[in-house]
Nucleic acid binder design. Structure first.
Lengths: 202, 202
DNA sequence: CTTTTATGAATGAAGG
DNA sequence: CCTTCATTCATAAAAG
């Protein structure tokens, strides 16, 4: 596998190096990533299953690792899209909070555009970021309000059926994503070169 | 596949504002494709292996613990604890994506039934789930498409009105899944030795 | 460096 | 269809 050997700089300067590159959109990258993750998950589960059935432990490490391919792919599912999530700058956050506090709980699309445009003066941002922020802000606020009614004697008829605090402690014992994630952590090398092979061109 | 149609020149403009494209070399693309195909092969073989094993419960004197098989393979985990929200299993997702990628954006009622029936073999599912999935998948794709090309079209608020005629000119229906649908068996070793290698641990 | 928390983003489902 | 909501997932940031 040559990815880690590829000097990332080549991809960054296609014009200078005259290197032919493929360009993928974010969505394409996302779909690809998911597909790989799907296979990684299936393989992981099946391997674990087989290990449990055969009481042998060398299947995943030796057979699969040597015969088919190195764990690079597994890691690839995790880091191919070195997804970096937006983090609001303090100024942006301040403005967002102020707008949110103005009581207007209706962030229309036009409003979103305006806000995003204004916030772009204080740092990188997109309309989607603004949209998500308001969505999350509202949901979080709402949940907090219902989870912490300690300051108010709110005794209405609907409160008797609420389980106030054990929503998180569901007996959920299995999460496929965790397998993939933990697996990637263990198997893959974390060197930045890999992710640089497919990187963002700014 | 549509990737090649993407103008590689986009990558040559690093200074064109907030451009976010992923760049891969030919070699990297090839490696990726093969690796995904490898996953497909592994999955199929492991699935077959699992089937053969589960069909003979007295194979190694090890009684097949259903506690391993069911939770791992279905992996939805929703059936165990009665989660309210359906979550597609990896295999279901794979099938759904493939169908979606086939370009037919018309999930007719009859088609929904067929798909749901097929997917039910890989986990709990209902026709409503399939319907919702396609609806959401389409909407999501569309929204991403219009959000992605915001890199070079640095428009102001008055020009933000999307050009009503050209937004769709971009090929919406790319199929990274094609990488997978191309028969993995052809690309990789899928000879019986492989599965026997897996069996050899026994 | 590892673990925990906060929060941006993804997504199934409902409403219109 | 399109929008909105509730929940979940993943990761940057914080805490240890």
């Amino acid at each position: 596998m040559e990815w880690e050997k590829q000097p990332p700089q080549q991809a960054e300067e296609p014009g200078a190096g005259g290197m032919f590159v493929k360009v993928m959109t974010d969505e394409q990258m996302e779909v690809l990533r998911k597909q790989i993750a799907v296979y990684a998950t299936i393989c992981e589960q099946l391997v674990e299953l087989h290990k449990s059935l055969t009481s042998q432990t060398d299947l995943a490490g030796v057979r699969l690792g040597n015969l088919y391919c190195d764990p690079l792919i597994t890691s690839g599912a995790h880091k191919i899209t070195g997804r970096q999530r937006w983090t609001p700058t303090p100024m942006q956050l301040q403005i967002l909070e102020r707008i949110f506090g103005q009581g207007i709980g209706t962030p229309s699309k036009q409003k979103i555009k305006e806000i995003a445009s204004e916030l772009s003066q204080h740092g990188q941002i997109s309309e989607t970021n603004v949209y998500n922020w308001f969505q999350n802000r509202r949901a979080r606020s709402k949940r907090k309000q219902q989870a912490a009614p300690s300051n108010n004697a709110e005794s209405e008829v609907e409160t008797e059926v609420e389980s106030p605090n054990d929503k998180k402690t569901k007996p959920e014992e299995f999460q496929p994503q965790n397998i993939l994630t933990s697996r990637a952590e263990d198997l893959c090398f974390q060197n930045p070169q890999t992710s640089s092979a497919i990187h963002s061109v700014d």
